[in-house]
Structure formats: C-alpha cells, structure tokens
C-alpha cells in the first residue's frame, strides 16, 4: 500500500484515539454503558440508524464462542456486531 504522509498522520491519530478512548468492543459483559459518540467512518450512518446514537444506554448480553461477534442489548432489541464494528462506538461506563 502507498501511504501518503497525511494518511499516515490520520492512521496514527486513529491508533492513539482508539488506545485512549473506551469503545463498546472493550465493554464488560452485562455492564450498562452510555454511548458518547460514533467514530467517523463509512459505517457511522449505519450504526446510528441501528439506534446507537449518543446518550443511548447499551450493554453486552453475550459473546460468540470466540469472543467475536458480540450481542448488544439496544433498548430492548438485540443487535449483534463484530468487534471491529463495536470499536467504532465510543462509550463511557455507567457507574
């Protein structure tokens, strides 16, 4: 692949961002968490349409046998998603 310096910068920022921010991919099982935002990506509108908007309270119901995908309780319905999709959903753990 041919990275331009801008791409590289973007990628590095993303990596740092992911390392610092907590996402749904790292949430604990059955722990209620509040969505704080969706990372910019081409999946963003899709995730929003599935009801994952800022302020929504969600929790992981169960994980598939190899830990991926996960099943998430979104306000009464069960949405399953891969970890790489869940990692776009930024959360704050609700204490």
């Amino acid at each position: 692949m041919n990275f331009t310096s801008f791409d590289l910068l973007l990628r590095v920022t993303q990596v740092i961002y992911i390392a610092v921010m907590k996402t749904l991919a790292q949430a604990k099982l059955h722990k209620r968490t509040i969505i704080t935002g969706i990372a910019d990506s081409d999946l963003k509108p899709k995730l929003l349409e599935m009801g994952l908007y800022t302020g929504k309270v969600v929790s992981i119901l169960f994980r598939a046998p190899f830990g991926d995908p996960i099943a998430v309780d979104v306000d009464g319905y069960v949405l399953s998603m891969r970890l790489n999709e869940a990692s776009l959903v930024q959360i704050e753990e609700n204490n």
Binding site: L43, K46, V78, L79
Partner: peptide
C-alpha cells in the same frame, strides 16, 4: 466495499 455484519438477533 467493506464487509458489514451488524445483524439484529430477533426474539
């Protein structure tokens, strides 16, 4: 075209 999973698990 990325592979999207996001699937509802119906009751």
């Amino acid at each position: 075209e990325r592979s999207v999973f996001l699937l509802e698990l119906p009751a």
